[in-house]
Design a protein around this nucleic acid. Structure first.
Length: 434
DNA sequence: TCTGGGGTCCTAGGACCC
DNA sequence: TCTGGGGTCCTAGGACCC
């Protein structure tokens, strides 16, 4: 048996923990640059705000319906996630942290009433962290996802699913008539791994509900679509094809890309931004203990500005030898951008991606023709990371990322960011009345 | 005026090898 | 007239996830 636990409307719920006045009000959390809604409270969903809705299209609801829109505070959400995950781990023996707000937990060998146990963990997370959660439990990951979906939907839309499945849904056994009913009541597009394109194709093939998909022949599905979808079919029938991964796999690529707060036309601004992105990417790379064999950098105009001249390109440059040296990676990324830059374009976004990642070897045997990263550079990078970890990101940086006092035209907008209540000493909540 | 940022896996087809 | 068979590796593109 596998459980899937996730935080309801996670980012919105995190904000509400520290501002209870937001309870009961329509609330959205915006993406970087305050661009679009990436989390919505139930009240915001009820207003018809879709996932990814551009802020400028929903802004009028602030006056009309009391909508509150906040800038994303990812440091806060990450910290709240850590706290939630450590409590969730108490549900079973092994935990896979699947995303910032979701984890799978292996319940094999756990005795007693699992639904009761899940309710206790849920109550503890609610009381200690302040986050409401839903838990689905089933024999496979795909069914656990589905059970979780039902736990959420049964709470939100009573009548569609049996009310006893609200918040905690333990998947009924295959022999139970409810099993059949739940699959039939679920549109195929709600199944994990079935996106908009597959939904359309499956509809054309007469597969409308999760029940239809579960009854399809996996071999036929594999021939017509893919092995991925065939596994989904088997998982819907209780045959586990996806394992629980306790240790997250090493990343195969590491990226840092951003839209600008306002469009940028000058090369100097682009180079500043690219320096910053390359430095961040290199920092993530070292944190994973890897080196990159290739660097990709890009700049692009906004496809939404129909009247602007459009330009974008994404070239990749192989490095003579793998490295995790910020200066080296930045140099390559800047060279790419100098080459790409065309005067007279309004650039809206840029980024750096590191690829062909491999484990860093500090004592590298020097047979390669290219120059390896010498030990002194490793020490320099370690010192850089230590200083920035202790005194805050950007304390030590390359001069080409811009100097103090110089205005960064490209910096992203975050007009409505809440304090780092749990991540910044100066922002700790202070109790003023005893 | 204003539209995010990160990832993964699979497949088909071409280049190349013996 | 008639021109093999079996591999591997790489890349681009498409689909999915949160």
């Amino acid at each position: 048996m596998i459980a899937l636990l996730d935080g309801n409307n996670f980012y919105a719920s995190c904000e509400r923990v520290f501002r209870p006045s937001l309870n009961g009000r329509p609330l959205v959390v915006l993406s970087n640059n305050d661009g679009c809604a990436i989390a919505r409270s139930e009240e915001a969903k009820a207003l018809g705000i879709k996932m990814g809705a551009p802020y400028f299209q929903i802004r009028h609801l602030e006056d009309q319906a009391g909508l509150v829109a906040l800038s994303a505070n990812f440091a806060l959400y990450g910290d709240m996630s850590d706290r939630m995950m450590s409590l969730a781990a108490g549900l079973g023996h092994r935990q896979e942290i699947y995303s910032i707000d979701e984890c799978f937990i292996d319940l094999a060998g756990i005795p007693g009433d699992l639904a009761l146990r899940a309710q206790k963990i849920q109550a503890r997370i609610r009381q200690w962290i302040g986050i409401p959660t839903c838990i689905g439990m089933a024999p496979t990951k795909t069914l656990a996802k589905l059970a979780n979906h039902i736990a959420k939907s049964a709470e939100r839309k009573p009548g569609h699913y049996p009310p006893e499945f609200a918040q905690v849904c333990q998947w009924p056994s295959v022999h139970d008539a409810t099993h059949h009913h739940l699959l039939q009541a679920t549109p195929v597009g709600e199944v994990w791994g079935v996106g908009p394109r597959l939904t359309q194709q499956l509809h054309e093939a007469g597969i409308i509900t999760a029940l239809d998909l579960s009854r399809a022949d996996p071999n036929t599905i594999q021939r017509r679509w893919s092995i991925v979808l065939a596994k989904t079919v088997r998982e819907l029938n209780g045959t586990a094809c996806l394992s629980l991964d306790e240790v997250p796999a090493e990343k195969q690529q590491i990226a840092c890309t951003r839209s600008f707060g306002q469009t940028v036309t000058e090369l100097s601004d682009l180079l500043e931004a690219i320096t910053e992105f390359a430095s961040r990417a290199a920092e993530k790379l070292r944190k994973q203990g890897s080196q990159a064999g290739q660097v990709m950098a890009f700049i692009r105009t906004s496809p939404f500005r129909a009247n602007d001249k459009q330009h974008s390109a994404y070239p990749t440059i192989p490095l003579p030898a793998p490295t995790s040296d910020t200066a080296h990676i930045t140099e390559v990324a800047c060279a790419i951008v100098r080459h790409l830059y065309k005067k007279g374009h309004r650039y809206a976004k840029a980024g750096v991606m590191l690829m062909d990642l491999q484990p860093a070897r500090h004592e590298q045997m020097c047979l390669a023709l290219g120059e390896n990263m010498p030990a002194s550079r490793h020490r320099l990078m370690t010192a850089l990371d230590n200083v920035n970890h202790r005194f805050g990101r950007g304390t030590l940086h390359l001069a080409s990322a811009g100097t103090a006092g110089k205005q960064r035209h490209w910096e992203m907008k975050q007009a409505r960011k809440t304090p780092g209540y749990t991540t910044d000493w100066k922002a700790l909540v202070v109790c003023t009345s005893v």
